[in-house]
């Protein structure tokens, strides 16, 4: 008896065999799907900030204002992974700042900082990867997530980001806070992931 794989491949081949010709792979320029307003945006950093804010991601360029925002949000416990300890020094006013993230504390951490693998200006997206993120849960479970984006790693377009995807089994583009409109089409933020998404541009 043939395997499922063989069966499927043979029916696919049988289905395609009678086609007189097959559609060629379309050739298109990399910018084909760029929105037409993109051309007028010279500065990728400014564009990223504009697009990120438009999709609900708060942008900060210094730690002080970011920490002030978190305080105003009532944040008490903050996770800052080890490589970022110099930021932790700026977070003295929180009741707890930890560099340890464990499953047991998934619901206790109010805010987490994790380094991003880059960003996309066109869409205001933050790029997360396994390589850059100490723990998948840390960037996802807390209500506040702050991604650290380095200026040099902002891709101008979606196509640029696709062309430069790092070799990582888990890449995520985050465009705004987690949300749903399942109930009567009403927009609610913070379903399973962060209800407040931010980035700190360094």
């Amino acid at each position: 008896m043939s395997t499922a794989r063989e069966q499927i491949f043979s029916s696919v081949r049988a289905a395609l065999a009678p086609l007189p010709e097959r559609t060629a792979r379309p050739v298109f320029s990399k910018d084909v799907a760029e929105p037409h307003w993109l051309a007028a945006e010279a500065d990728s950093l400014a564009l990223f900030q504009k697009r990120a804010e438009a999709t609900g991601t708060k942008c900060f360029t210094d730690m002080e204002s970011c920490a002030a925002w978190l305080r105003s949000q009532g944040v008490r416990t903050v996770y800052i992974p080890a490589p970022l300890t110099r930021l932790a020094a700026l977070c003295s006013e929180f009741s707890e700042v930890t560099s340890e993230y464990t499953r047991a504390r998934v619901n206790e951490i109010d805010a987490a900082f994790t380094p991003a693998a880059g960003a996309i200006a066109e869409s205001g997206s933050i790029i997360l990867s396994d390589e850059s993120t100490p723990d998948r849960l840390a960037a996802l479970a807390p209500w506040h997530h702050i991604a650290l984006v380095s200026r040099a790693e902002i891709h101008r377009t979606i196509a640029d980001a696709l062309a430069a995807m790092p070799d990582d089994p888990n890449l995520i583009w985050v465009t705004g806070p987690s949300k749903t409109a399942d109930v009567e089409g009403i927009l609610i933020q913070g379903v399973h992931g962060p209800g407040a998404q931010a980035c700190l541009i360094l």
């Binding site: 929105p35 999709t55 997206s125 089994p169 890449l171 985050v174 465009t175 992931g193």
Partner: peptide, 12 residues
């Protein structure tokens, strides 16, 4: 939406 909130790429 230009992109949905999460676009995930997983290959392993």
């Amino acid at each position: 939406q230009q992109l949905t909130v999460y676009t995930e790429f997983i290959n392993g």
